[in-house]
Simulated scan of single mutants.
Amino acid sequence: MMTIDVAPARRAEVKSLARVLGRAFYDDPLMTWMMPDDARRARALPRIFAAMTRHHFLAGDATEVAGRDGGLGAAALWDPPGRWRQTPREELRMMPAFLLAMGRQVGRGQAMADLMKKNHPEEPHWYLAVIGSDPTVRGAGFGQALMRSRLDRCDAEGAPAYLESTKESNIGYYMRFGFEVTGEIRMPDDGPPIWPMWRAPR
């Protein structure tokens, strides 16, 4: 079995990282609700993930990529404890990309972000905002390598971790890493539910 390399994401990798996450989230229920048009969603998601990574996540030094033979297979966007809120300046810098990507659907994106913020735990924790594998390598252990890399650090620091699962089918996967469902957040306009999950350190 060939080794999967996990490393901090570099600025030069933002575009390829964003393309991988865009493909990973193309059929995600939350993204489909936010941007129902398939073609628009395919174009928009890489732009959104690139803006988030470039203007917020890279500064937290907690974005990681997993690759094999120089090819990038998966990415995880984490926030360190105390850093999950985007600053007004970061939000301002991301806004042009969001507006360009989402157009009239930007209101739904805002509604989602507001609900997630309202339900976000206050206790200091590592926040896994986004994790995704390219569909071509799904099931090959890339996501697992990324989860282990950061959760080992959480355990070493005695720090809890938090995420929101946007797919019911992924809940069992996260539970294997020690996450537990703490509730359900439902989007407006008959939108899909998402499941907040918390992991105590081991």
Rank of each mutant, 00 (worst) to 15 (best):
D5C: 05
A7C: 01
E13N: 02
V14M: 05
A18V: 05
R19A: 07
V20S: 10
G22Y: 05
G22C: 06
F25D: 04
Y26F: 09
Y26C: 05
D28R: 02
P29M: 09
L30W: 09
L30P: 03
L30N: 06
M31R: 09
W33S: 01
M35L: 14
P36A: 04
P36I: 00
D37I: 09
A39Q: 13
R40Y: 08
R43L: 12
A44G: 10
L45R: 04
R47S: 02
I48E: 12
M52D: 10
M52K: 06
M52L: 13
T53A: 15
R54W: 04
R54A: 10
R54M: 10
R54T: 11
H55P: 04
H56Q: 14
A59Y: 15
G60I: 01
A62S: 14
A66F: 13
A66K: 11
G67N: 08
D69F: 08
D69E: 14
G70N: 14
G71D: 07
G73L: 11
A74V: 09
A74S: 15
A76Q: 08
L77S: 12
W78I: 06
W78S: 14
D79M: 06
D79L: 05
D79C: 07
E90N: 05
E91Q: 15
E91N: 07
M94R: 10
M95H: 12
P96S: 06
A97F: 10
A97Y: 12
F98S: 07
L99Q: 13
L99H: 12
A101W: 14
A101N: 10
A101S: 11
M102E: 14
M102K: 08
V106T: 09
G109T: 09
Q110A: 13
A111P: 05
M112D: 07
A113Q: 10
A113G: 07
K118Y: 04
N119I: 00
H120Q: 05
E123G: 00
P124R: 02
P124A: 02
H125S: 06
W126N: 02
W126P: 02
Y127G: 00
V130G: 02
V130P: 06
G132N: 08
S133G: 03
D134N: 01
P135T: 00
P135Y: 07
T136V: 03
V137T: 04
R138I: 00
R138W: 03
A140F: 02
A140G: 02
G141W: 03
G143Q: 02
Q144P: 00
A145V: 01
A145E: 01
R148Q: 04
R148D: 00
R148K: 02
R150G: 01
L151R: 03
G158H: 06
A159S: 07
L163V: 02
T166L: 05
T166Q: 10
K167T: 14
E168V: 07
S169G: 11
I171R: 15
I171D: 15
R176S: 12
F177K: 03
F179W: 15
F179C: 15
V181K: 13
G183Y: 15
R186K: 14
R186T: 15
M187G: 13
M187P: 07
P188N: 11
P188L: 14
P192S: 09
P192W: 11
I194E: 11
I194T: 13
A200V: 06
